[in-house]
Each structure stands twice: as structure tokens, then as C-alpha cells.
Design a binder for these strands. Structure first.
Lengths: 262, 262
DNA sequence: CCTCGGGAATCACATAGGTGATTCCGCCCA
DNA sequence: TGGGCGGAATCACCTATGTGATTCCCGAGG
């Protein structure tokens, strides 16, 4: 679990932090992103940004707080399919669909920007480097989804939770939300952990106790501290490659791609 | 499980069939697709088209046979994350990555086209309607992945298998590979079904017997027949919306999108 | 300071599904 | 015509995880 150098958060725009990791951004590019983020709204925990069946009209950008993507079955069971953290933009391409096949809810009070389709398209036209970074981010989201399927399909309860915590730690540290002691705010109830990992709440509870007893994690006041990152990652079989947080050979990549296409 | 009008296969290009469902294609567009498909290669069952760690250089298009996307863990367990059927193009965007985070293998002998990045980019430039259809197909792949996560995370063994069979039936019928009696070739061993659904082979076996005993399906000579589509779909909680096989309001969609962006 | 409520922790018990090994069956091939 | 082999079917047994209900705890609000 390699942790990127974590300068203190100091209010820097999380989207810039995230994209900057994929493609170094110019002053102008940063400014235009900042500008888009001006028009943010506050939303309350528990409300849905959009629901299954709705027609998507805007893309959501999370500036503060946590959101999550989920599907609900008739029998009341629910599967959480992604967490959307500060700096995350919920899939741009989704505008193509006439109906959402899932909902997006809020796990905490949140600051959200609603970006109309037009604005996103315009932004991507004018700033191809931003477009690239967004495409990259989309690919990472997909890779993450695949990893979740692997997690739920093949790993034990202990591994599933361990893996989830490793992933969240890496993702949060990218946007500066992890402290030096590997601790971070985790606004999830055990029910939500259960719906993420395909376990029951009771078993999530048991498993968390196990993780605590083995001195792998500790929880206090809604924060989670990873006490032994190495061991936790080992148990989980966690390999952060799929998150592509390390060195961005993106530029070379793209040059290669373009030259191929000539 | 609404089955699209299934004209007999009569050698029509499966990619054209698939994309034609999203965007009506002109003569010229069909021809250019046919042309791309000229240079196909035969591949043997069991071989991998590309492996975890490889750098992707081309996109694969399946013309005949079945492929599958999978990840392998150190302990030998494997999760299958998608089936690639005739007409399926394995994610174009993946060319952006420098390393595959999963492998693609063959479940049967297969006829595959390797399309270089340059060619795909060129094709999309020259034929924006094809580009749209490809984007649409990509979205459907993602939606399918989400549905699989839901399947493995929340449903019982019986439901998981039922759901998988419903999905395959719909997808195969789009490319004309389902007979009138709702039967189709299913080149999967019970081990592969197990690795898809996150179950053990023994339990897959038990569950298949149950499905047979309840007269929901029958299997013979590598074909699967869905005896009672309605009941099977009901058990599975299957709703084919996410596959977007019915009526393509795509055109209107896109017009709306464009007008928004003005 | 009380109390109310959501979430965490516990409990006793049930079972879906996993394990490992063995046997069976149809098919290809010599 | 008889291996040999991959996959299916069975078997006996086990346990990880689920169920439903109850109790506990703590922080928010009156």
C-alpha cells in the first residue's frame, strides 16, 4: 500500500489532486476546473442524488463527503457497487442512457457539483488533457469494479473487509484524506459494509472484531486506523496496481497511442 | 426475457447485428465493418488472447466462439468477470493502459480479429455513428459488470445460475445464436460456472440438478435449453433492461445530448 | 439530566454452501 | 476394443456465514 506523499489537505481542489496524478495540469487547466466547482450545492446525508429509473441530466462531482452507487432488489437486499469520494466524478458516459439502472446516495452530508452535459462536453473539447485524465479515471473506476467482483466472488469475509479498507486508504490518500498514522474518516455503518461485501451485518461485526483483536485495525469515533498496513494488505491479497495511483506513465502512453494511429 | 426477432443466423456478421441494434447502420458502414473483419485468425480453445501483465496492442473482436475475461489469485482461485460472445469487442479504451490487469481466455475454438489501435481510432473518426454504437456497447458491458456484482453479492446459488442463463440467452439471441426452442450452445464446464458465480463446483452441480428437476432447464450435448423462460426469469429476479437490447431510442438520446450542448 | 434512537455488540441456533475424495460416464484415439 | 481422460455426478462430513431477536452503548436533542 504505497502512500503518495500526503501534503496536508489545505483546501486544494480534490478533482485537481486526482487528475493531476494522471496528467500534469497547467495553470489554465486548474483554473477552469476550479471554476466549474464554484457552483456547488450542499446535500444531506441519506438523500439520493439520483435514483434508479431517473433520466440522468447532469454529471455529479463530489467535493466533500461520501456518496455511493447501489442497486436495490425487490426483497429489500441492496448491493453497493462503488464509493464516490471527494474528487470523484460519477461516470460521464452515463448521460447516454435514458434511464439510470442504479441509484446514487449520500453517506454523509456532502458538497456536490452538478455539471450539465453541455459543460462537460465543452470542457473536454477545449482541454484535451483534461479529457484524457477523465478517460483515465473512468478506466480506473471500471478496474475497481472488476476488483470488487473478484473480492465478493472469491475471498473470505476477513479478506473482503481487509481488501476494502486497503482500497479506501489508497484512494483517500490520493485526495489527502489520510493522516500520517494511516487513519481516516470512515462514514460507513456495519450495514453498509455488509451490503458492500455481500455479507450479513452480524458477520461483518464478528469479522471486524477479529481484525481489531489481531491488531490490524482500530476504530474510534467514526475513524478507521490501519495499524498494520503490510499485514492487512497481505491478508487481503491487495495489490494496488489496479488503482493506478503510482507514477503516471500516461503521457508516454498517449504519445505511443497517437503515433500508432498515424 | 423478450427475445428479439431471430432471423436464422445465415452468416451475417455478428458485430453488425449487435451494433445495428443500437444505431441503424448504412450500407457503407456495414461494408467497412465487414472489411475490418476480413483479417480474422483461428485460435484454439484454452489459449489466452492476452494475459495479465501484458501490454495491450490491439483490440479483439470475437467473430465465432466464446472468450472470457478473468482474474486469477495466487491461491489458484479464479473469478470470471465477463463472457465475450460473437460480435463482442473487448473494451477499446483498454489500450490506454500499459498493463492488463486481467486475462482473456478462450472457452472454445474461436475466430478472432485483432484490430490495431490505429484502425479503431480511424474507424471511429470516419464513422461517428459507429463510434456511438461502440460507446453504447461499452456502457452495456459496464452495466453488465454491475449486474454480476449484484448477482454474486446478493443472490442465492439458484438465483445466480438462473440469472446467468437468462442473461446469456438474451445476449446470444441478439446475435442469432438461440434457436426457436430457447436452446443454445453453452461451452461452459461446471468449473467455469462455479468461477463465474462464486460457488464451488459441487454446489453448481447440485444447483443445476435442481434447475433440471424443476423443469426450468435441460442440458444435452453442450446445449442448454430454457424450458420455462418466464419462471426462470422470475426466480432469478432477471430484468433485461440493463442489456438495452430492446428498441434503440439511441438516436433521440443523442440528438437530445447534442442539443443540450449548444 | 433524561430519553430517545441509531448503530454496535451478543446470543442461540440454523443452513447454505464448501471440502476432498471417489466413482461414473461418454468420447476420442490407438 | 480397450485404455485413458475430462467432465459430471455422488458421498460424507464440515464450517463459514446467515437469521432473528435481544441487549447494550453513546451521542444528540429537549
Amino acid at each position: 500500500m504505497s502512500k503518495p506523499p500526503s501534503e496536508p489537505y489545505r483546501g486544494k481542489n480534490p478533482l485537481i489532486r486526482k487528475l493531476g496524478r494522471f496528467v500534469p495540469l497547467t495553470q489554465a487547466e486548474c483554473e477552469v476546473i476550479e471554476q466549474v466547482c464554484q457552483s456547488s450545492h450542499q446535500h444531506r446525508q441519506g438523500s439520493d442524488l439520483i435514483q434508479q429509473g431517473d433520466k440522468p441530466r447532469t454529471v455529479f462531482l463530489i467535493l466533500k463527503g461520501w456518496a455511493f452507487r447501489y442497486k436495490q432488489l425487490e426483497d429489500g437486499s441492496r448491493q453497493i457497487m462503488a464509493y464516490l469520494l471527494p474528487g470523484d466524478l460519477c461516470d460521464i458516459q452515463i448521460l447516454l442512457f435514458e434511464k439510470m439502472d442504479h441509484s446514487i446516495g449520500l453517506l454523509s452530508d456532502a458538497e456536490v457539483v452538478k455539471i450539465p452535459a453541455a459543460e462537460i462536453l465543452d470542457l473536454m473539447d477545449r482541454f484535451p488533457r483534461i479529457e484524457r485524465a477523465l478517460m483515465w479515471a473512468t478506466l480506473v473506476d471500471e478496474a475497481t469494479l472488476r476488483e470488487w467482483l473478484l473480492n465478493v466472488g472469491q475471498r473470505s469475509a476477513l479478506q473482503r473487509l481487509a481488501h476494502l479498507f486497503c482500497e479506501l486508504c489508497v484512494r483517500l490518500s490520493v485526495v489527502g484524506l489520510v493522516d500520517e498514522d494511516e487513519s481516516f474518516v470512515l462514514p460507513l455503518t456495519q450495514t453498509e459494509l455488509a451490503d458492500t461485501t455481500g455479507l450479513s451485518t452480524v458477520h461483518v461485526n464478528r469479522t471486524l472484531q477479529r481484525l481489531r483483536k489481531d491488531n490490524l485495525i482500530s476504530t474510534l469515533h467514526g475513524r478507521l486506523t490501519i495499524l498494520n498496513p503490510t499485514k492487512l494488505a497481505e491478508i487481503a491479497g491487495f495489490n494496488n496496481d489496479y488503482l493506478h495511483t503510482d507514477g503516471p506513465p500516461v503521457e508516454q502512453q498517449l504519445r505511443a497511442r497517437v503515433s500508432q494511429s498515424m
